[in-house]
């Protein structure tokens, strides 16, 4: 093919590409007008843009001067003379600053004070953590309710059953979410000192993972293990939710339970340690 032929072909290609693009754009407007449809909009937009893109690439590669052109680089560093002249001019102020050391120090004090003062409004961004990480909404005698707010009775769960529960009046409260598991039909002792914490085989653990705070949502009934779906920490439900695999380092805190005279499950008290992920002074 001769050069003029090639050029004519390229021109035709670009014309067709731009033409197709224009048609697709009209189609896009029409589709929108008719109520819109996600897939068709995407495809038409892609054709409209693709036609332009293809046209420009053909123009760049076939119709415009290809070079190669050469451009010389500037020498980046300035000449010695220029640098020296700059330094002389800089000296004008620098020397003054050196002689007025005391003023510079005072300026530092003023600027530092202003900077510190400017940090104070940051405090408005959030409340004092106080002991909010150390307390949940569980209290002595809190009624154990499920996610619909229904109280949990001794007969609610079969052995092997699991339920997410909250203290009454605090549904969906993130730090109080608790996993109730019935691992037996008689009292269970998960650890020394917790002799009366799991009446009728009901054990309750904080559902907030001690690793990164995800809800420990999966219970493997066959091995009686709790699994966090986020980072796969698993906890032994029989032995006080001791971590047995994954990145978690601490047991899930256990909520001491009791059964009241009406056969309803209640908390004996709040958790005896902060729930959820660690923080630096958690143990204090």
């Amino acid at each position: 093919m001769s050069a003029p032929d090639r050029e004519r072909r390229a021109v035709n290609q670009v014309a067709v590409a731009f033409g197709v693009s224009a048609l697709a754009s009209l189609g896009l407007a029409a589709v929108y007008w008719q109520g819109g449809q996600n897939q068709v909009e995407g495809v038409l937009l892609a054709i409209a843009l693709g036609g332009l893109g293809y046209g420009f690439v053909v123009v760049a590669r076939r119709l415009l001067p290809q070079g190669p052109y050469t451009e010389e680089r500037d020498v980046l560093p300035s000449s010695e003379g220029q640098v020296a002249a700059f330094e002389t001019d800089l000296e004008r102020g620098e020397g003054w600053l050196a002689r007025r050391g005391f003023l510079v120090k005072m300026l530092g004090v003023a600027a530092g004070a202003l900077g510190v003062a400017a940090l104070f409004p940051l405090r408005s961004l959030g409340p004092n953590p106080g002991n909010s990480l150390r307390r949940t909404k569980w209290r002595r005698g809190s009624l154990v309710v499920d996610e619909q707010g229904e109280p949990v009775r001794v007969r609610t769960l079969e052995v092997g059953g699991v339920l997410t529960v909250f203290p009454e009046g605090h549904l969906e409260r993130e730090d109080s979410q608790t996993l109730l598991i019935r691992i037996s039909d008689e009292n269970v002792v998960t650890r020394k000192g917790r002799e009366d914490w799991a009446p009728e085989g009901y054990v309750a653990y904080s559902k907030v993972c001690t690793h990164a705070g995800c809800p420990v949502g999966l219970y493997q009934q066959d091995v009686k293990r709790l699994l966090c779906p986020c980072h796969q920490s698993s906890f032994d439900a029989v032995e006080g939710a001791r971590p047995v695999f994954g990145p978690a380092t601490r047991s899930l805190p256990q909520l001491p339970l009791m059964v009241d005279d009406n056969g309803l499950l209640r908390a004996q008290d709040d958790y005896d340690e902060p729930i959820g992920p660690g923080f630096w002074d958690r143990g204090r």
């Binding site: 995407g42 893109g53 760049a60």
Partner: peptide
């Protein structure tokens, strides 16, 4: 030349994303 080429690249990038988005 480069202007045409890079405009082409812009439109092609956008076209691919539009197709994916649709």
């Amino acid at each position: 030349t480069f202007m045409a080429k890079t405009l082409g690249l812009f439109f092609l990038t956008f076209a691919v994303l539009a197709a994916l988005g649709g």
